[in-house]
Deep mutational scan, measured.
Amino acid sequence: DTFTFTLDGIEVRLHGASEELIKTIEELLKRDIRWEELEKWIREWEK
């Protein structure tokens, strides 16, 4: 599955994202998160 969203005018596609990761990103997007914050968060998630 591919999860697609737009952040700061950039279309982002995550391939093979888990349901948990998708739900977490959706929550972060509701908080009007900035790209830099999401990028940092995703790097931490990957560890």
Rank of each mutant, 00 (worst) to 15 (best):
I22N: 01
E44Y: 09
F3H: 02
W35Q: 02
W35C: 04
F5S: 02
D8N: 05
E26L: 15
E27Y: 07
R43K: 13
E20C: 08
L28D: 00
R43T: 13
F3W: 08
T4L: 07
L14P: 00
I22S: 01
T24R: 14
E39C: 11
T4P: 01
W35L: 12
L38Q: 00
L7R: 01
D8M: 04
T2R: 03
E39P: 08
W35P: 04
R13A: 14
E36Y: 08
E20H: 10
F5N: 02
F5K: 03
L21Q: 10
V12W: 04
E37M: 07
W45K: 03
I10H: 13
R43Q: 14
W45G: 04
L14W: 04
G16A: 08
R34S: 12
I33D: 04
E11T: 14
E46K: 06
E36G: 07
D1H: 14
G16N: 14
T24Q: 14
I42S: 01
L29M: 06
R34C: 04
L28Y: 06
R13F: 12
E39W: 14
E19Y: 10
W45F: 12
F5D: 03
E46P: 10
G16K: 05
E11Q: 05
A17C: 09
R43V: 13
E36V: 14
I22Q: 06
R31W: 07
W35S: 03
K40H: 10
K40E: 11
T6H: 08
E20K: 09
E20D: 11
E36M: 09
R34K: 14
V12K: 01
T6F: 15
T4D: 14
T6S: 04
E27F: 07
A17G: 04
E37F: 08
G9K: 01
L38F: 15
H15T: 14
D1Y: 09
I33K: 04
E36L: 09
L14T: 01
L38I: 04
E26F: 08
E46F: 15
T24F: 14
R43I: 14
W45P: 01
E11C: 07
L29F: 03
T6E: 15
L21E: 07
G16C: 07
W45N: 06
K30H: 07
K40V: 11
R34D: 06
L21C: 06
E19G: 10
K40T: 11
E20M: 11
R13Y: 14
E44G: 08
W45C: 10
L21P: 00
L38P: 00
L29P: 00
E20W: 11
A17L: 08
L28F: 09
D1L: 15
E11V: 10
E19D: 12
E26K: 15
G16Y: 06
K23Y: 07
R43W: 11
I10N: 06
T6R: 02
L38E: 00
R31D: 09
D32E: 10
G9I: 05
T6Y: 15
T2K: 06
L29H: 01
E11K: 03
D32F: 06
W41E: 07
L21Y: 05
E39G: 05
D8K: 00
D32C: 06
R43F: 10
I42H: 01
E11R: 01
F3D: 01
T6N: 10
F5W: 01
T4H: 12
I33G: 04
T4N: 10
T4Q: 11
E46V: 13
W41H: 15
L38K: 00
E19C: 05
I25C: 02
D1G: 11
R13N: 15
E44A: 11
E19K: 13
E46C: 10
W35F: 14
L28V: 07
V12H: 12
K23G: 08
W45S: 04
K30Q: 10
G16H: 12
E20S: 10
E39S: 10
R13P: 02
G9L: 05
E27H: 07
E39N: 09
L28P: 00
E36I: 13
E39L: 14
V12E: 01
K30M: 09
W35M: 08
